[in-house]
Amino acid sequence: MSIHILALVGSVRAGSHNGQLAQAAAKLTPEGVELSIQENLDQVPFYNEDLDSEGSIPQHAAALRESAARADALLLFVPEYNGTMSAVLKNAIDWLSRPYGAGALSGKPVAVIGASGGQYGGVWAHQDARKAATAAQANVLEDITLSIPDSLTRFADTHPLDDSEIATELKSVVVRLAQAAERATAAHV
């Protein structure tokens, strides 16, 4: 059985270090694990219950929900904007939290990691992302953490995939998240 992990990247900027981390994670998956990166998060409209009605959900919001529903686990790559997570990531979590009690995150293993230009690696944003995912009824794996500080310098000339320390840590995150997904899947069989 193959485990599918869906990556949500909270930065839509071309060349984003969190986007590069997600690309690296997709290449570091072990056999039996697939990691896909959700595209077009910046095209998902802000959550509005008026838009969230049966049969008329906006295209990109519906695609996000479908991708998350098919995934066995989610890996959130969280930049820090003004001390918290980005609006695009918070919006994605909001769409995935509905319908309440049956949202696409409900019961799914979720890990939160990321890089930031600041000296703490975005830990405040990561805490907020964990809190929002928990409120959306995800099974947030608090023991999986990776907060990479000073990414502007660290990745100025090196892609995260070519940074052996980061590549090792990233692979460990993916393996541990896949193991959590396997346990969750086995518990539901």
Score class of each variant (00 low, 15 high):
residue 40 N to S: 14
residue 17 H to I: 02
residue 37 I to Y: 04
residue 31 E to A: 15
residue 26 A to Y: 07
residue 29 T to Y: 08
residue 16 S to K: 05
residue 12 V to I: 13
residue 4 H to C: 05
residue 8 L to P: 10
residue 26 A to Q: 12
residue 30 P to R: 12
residue 12 V to Q: 04
residue 28 L to D: 02
residue 38 Q to I: 08
residue 7 A to F: 02
residue 5 I to P: 01
residue 15 G to S: 11
residue 16 S to L: 04
residue 15 G to K: 08
residue 13 R to W: 03
residue 30 P to S: 12
residue 2 S to R: 08
residue 5 I to Q: 04
residue 9 V to H: 00
residue 27 K to N: 12
residue 28 L to W: 05
residue 13 R to D: 02
residue 40 N to C: 11
residue 8 L to C: 10
residue 12 V to N: 04
residue 37 I to D: 08
residue 32 G to Y: 11
residue 22 A to S: 10
residue 41 L to P: 00
residue 41 L to F: 11
residue 15 G to W: 08
residue 28 L to C: 08
residue 19 G to A: 11
residue 15 G to Y: 12
residue 31 E to C: 06
residue 33 V to G: 02
residue 28 L to E: 02
residue 17 H to M: 06
residue 40 N to W: 11
residue 41 L to Q: 07
residue 22 A to M: 08
residue 6 L to H: 08
residue 36 S to I: 12
residue 24 A to Y: 07
residue 3 I to M: 13
residue 35 L to T: 09
residue 10 G to I: 02
residue 23 Q to G: 14
residue 14 A to M: 07
residue 14 A to C: 06
residue 25 A to H: 09
residue 42 D to S: 14
residue 8 L to N: 05
residue 14 A to Q: 14
residue 9 V to C: 02
residue 11 S to N: 06
residue 32 G to W: 09
residue 20 Q to M: 13
residue 8 L to Q: 03
residue 29 T to W: 08
residue 4 H to E: 14
residue 34 E to S: 14
residue 4 H to I: 00
residue 9 V to K: 00
residue 28 L to M: 10
residue 18 N to G: 01
residue 13 R to Y: 03
residue 5 I to V: 12
residue 27 K to C: 11
residue 24 A to F: 07
residue 23 Q to L: 13
residue 5 I to L: 14
residue 7 A to C: 12
residue 12 V to G: 05
residue 27 K to S: 15
residue 4 H to K: 13
residue 26 A to S: 15
residue 14 A to K: 14
residue 3 I to P: 01
residue 23 Q to C: 06
residue 24 A to M: 07
residue 36 S to K: 15
residue 23 Q to T: 13
residue 12 V to T: 13
residue 27 K to T: 12
residue 25 A to M: 15
residue 22 A to F: 05
residue 13 R to L: 03
residue 28 L to P: 00
residue 21 L to K: 03
residue 10 G to P: 00
residue 33 V to D: 02
residue 7 A to E: 01
residue 41 L to K: 01
residue 10 G to K: 00
residue 3 I to C: 05
residue 34 E to C: 08
residue 39 E to R: 15
residue 17 H to S: 14
residue 25 A to G: 11
residue 11 S to D: 01
residue 36 S to R: 13
residue 11 S to I: 00
residue 38 Q to P: 07
residue 25 A to K: 06
residue 14 A to N: 10
residue 32 G to L: 11
residue 4 H to S: 13
residue 42 D to M: 07
residue 19 G to M: 02
residue 23 Q to Y: 05
residue 16 S to A: 13
residue 19 G to N: 06
residue 15 G to C: 11
residue 31 E to M: 10
